[in-house]
Simulated scan of single mutants.
Amino acid sequence: MNPVPTRDELRAHLVRTMIAGDVATPRQNNLLHYRRMAAGHPYYQFGLELKPSWTEQTVLEMMVERCGVNADPRHGYGDDTIDPEITLDTLEAMGDRIGLAARRRESVILATGHPSTLGPLYQAVARALEEAGCRLLTPAAGWTYEIETGYGGSDLRRIVYAEPGVAMLEDCGAAGVRQAQHTHDSLPMETMLHELATTAPADSPEAKPDFWPDLAIADHGWAGAAGQAGIDTVGFADCNDPALFAGAAEGKIDVAVPLDDGVAPRHYAPLTAYILDRAGLGPSA
C-alpha cells in the first residue's frame, strides 16, 4: 500500500505529474469535443441523453466551472488547464461515496476505457471494496461486438474483467494476440446493464438489488451509460471529455473527477491511496 499523501502533498503531485494544473491535452482538441457534444454527436455524448440546450459557449463555461479549463474563448491553441483544487474536491467526494458503498456492502460495477493507465487504480479500489464485503458485478463477460476502424475495416472487441472485477474491452486480435483497448463507447455498459436487468429472478423482486448496481465507478461511455440508467455513478474525465461534466451538471453523474487520464500508471498511485483513505479503506482505517 502506498503512503497516503496529505491534500497539499497530493496537490503538488498532481501539478508535478501534469495530472492537473497545466496539462498536455491540446486546447484545440478540447474545443472540438465541446462543439461536437453541443451538436449532439453520439460519440461525444458517452451514452447520456443530454439536454439539447447546450451550446459551445455554455459547454466551455461549464468546463471552466467543473474542470478548470482556460476561460478565455479566444484561447484556441496550445495546452489547457485542469484546476487541481477541483480535482482534490471531487476525489474526496468520490472517496466519500465509495466509503458509503463499503459500509453498506453495496453491489458495485467498475469499468474503464483507459485500462493501460487507470486500470491499476480501478483494481485497487475493487479489491478494497471486495474485502469490505461489497459484491462486484461482472455481467456480460465475453460479449463481443464489431467496431469500425476506418477505410472499411473493422475490429472485434470483447468485454473482459481484470481481477477482481474491473470491466474493460479487449481486442480479440488477429493471430491470437489480445490487448486491452481504449474506448469511449457506451454500448458495452448498456449491454452489461441489460444482462443484469434480464437475469434477475422474476419471482423474487426483493433479490433485484443484488443483481443491480448500487454504484458504478467508471469513465467515458461506461460511466455515461450507468448514469443514464439512474445508477449512482462516480468517475474520471479528462478536459476533452465534456459529456460526463455535463451529466454531473444535469444530475445524472454524481461525481466527475477532472484529471489527465493518459499519464503513466504509477503516477495515479497517490490518488488511489488518497481515495481509499478518504473512503475509510486505507491502512489507517
Rank of each mutant, 00 (worst) to 15 (best):
R278M: 10
R11E: 07
A202Y: 08
E195K: 04
P265S: 01
V160D: 10
M18N: 01
A249L: 05
D254F: 09
A237Y: 02
D260H: 13
D219N: 14
V166H: 05
H33I: 13
G247F: 02
T55W: 12
P120K: 11
L60N: 03
I86H: 05
E146N: 11
G47P: 02
T183C: 03
L137H: 00
G113R: 01
L14K: 01
W143T: 07
D83P: 09
A256V: 04
E206L: 15
H267N: 11
A243M: 09
M189P: 00
L196Q: 06
K252M: 11
R11P: 02
P270N: 08
N70G: 08
I159Q: 02
E56Y: 11
L48E: 05
D8M: 12
G282V: 05
L14D: 01
A237N: 01
Q57S: 13
E148T: 11
P201R: 05
R105W: 10
N2L: 15
A249G: 03
T183R: 01
A141P: 00
D72S: 13
P283G: 11
P265H: 00
A39N: 07
Q28G: 05
T138E: 08
D210M: 15
P84Q: 07
L60Q: 04
T17L: 04
P205W: 04
K208S: 14
L91H: 00
S204L: 15
D214Y: 05
V234P: 00
P188S: 06
A200P: 01
A167M: 15
G142A: 05
G227A: 14
D241G: 07
D185E: 15
D155V: 13
D8I: 09
Q28K: 09
D96Y: 12
L60P: 00
M37R: 02
D80K: 08
L118Q: 07
A174N: 14
G152Q: 10
A207M: 14
